[in-house]
């Protein structure tokens, strides 16, 4: 009986996890094209041409959950060691999504670039002992907005 439950959960996790992952990747790639105009630069101090710009903090965050299949795949991988591809794609999605949300906020403010971008990753989950529950990624930086006085 337990084995059946396990296999059902595994199957559900695989199917729905795959579906949501590919849907998410499609939307990420599409929005990355749209938001390419807002450049994201992890440089501490902006060059002098931005001297007359206004600056403000922008951030974007996302919480993404693992699916059951990924949890099992990762715990198997823990035995043999090596790359845990299941979690790599999860974190990649979360980081790109967080940056996209930050870029979106900056674009709404009329900014053309974001400097000093930093990431912050944290684990959320009641079952922290059992493994990764869900992961939160926050991206933040300083948006530079061309002020009207500079034109």
């Amino acid at each position: 009986m337990e084995l059946i439950v396990f296999l059902v959960l595994l199957g559900l996790g695989y199917v729905f996890g795959r579906l949501s992952e590919s849907r998410h990747y499609r939307s990420i790639i599409q929005r990355e094209q749209v938001l390419r105009g807002v450049s994201v630069v992890p440089v501490k101090i902006p060059p002098p041409e931005y001297l007359r710009h206004e600056s403000t903090l922008v951030c974007g965050s996302v919480v993404i959950s693992v699916d059951y299949f990924k949890t099992v795949a990762a715990s198997l991988r823990n035995i043999f060691g090596g790359r845990v591809g299941a979690y790599e794609s999860l974190l990649d999605r979360a980081r790109r999504e967080a940056v996209l949300r930050m870029q979106d906020e900056a674009r709404q403010l009329g900014a053309e670039t974001i400097y000093n971008v930093k990431y912050e990753t944290s684990r959320i989950g009641e079952n922290a002992a059992k493994g990764l529950g869900s992961v939160e990624v926050l991206a933040y930086g300083t948006a530079l907005i061309a002020s009207t006085a500079s034109k």
Partner: peptide
């Protein structure tokens, strides 16, 4: 709800909202 999401995967909108 988050516990269910841990089976299916995907974004936890409630938590994203809470944290922001």
């Amino acid at each position: 709800m988050a516990g269910f999401k841990n089976i299916f995967g995907g974004e936890l909108k409630g938590y994203t909202e809470l944290l922001s």
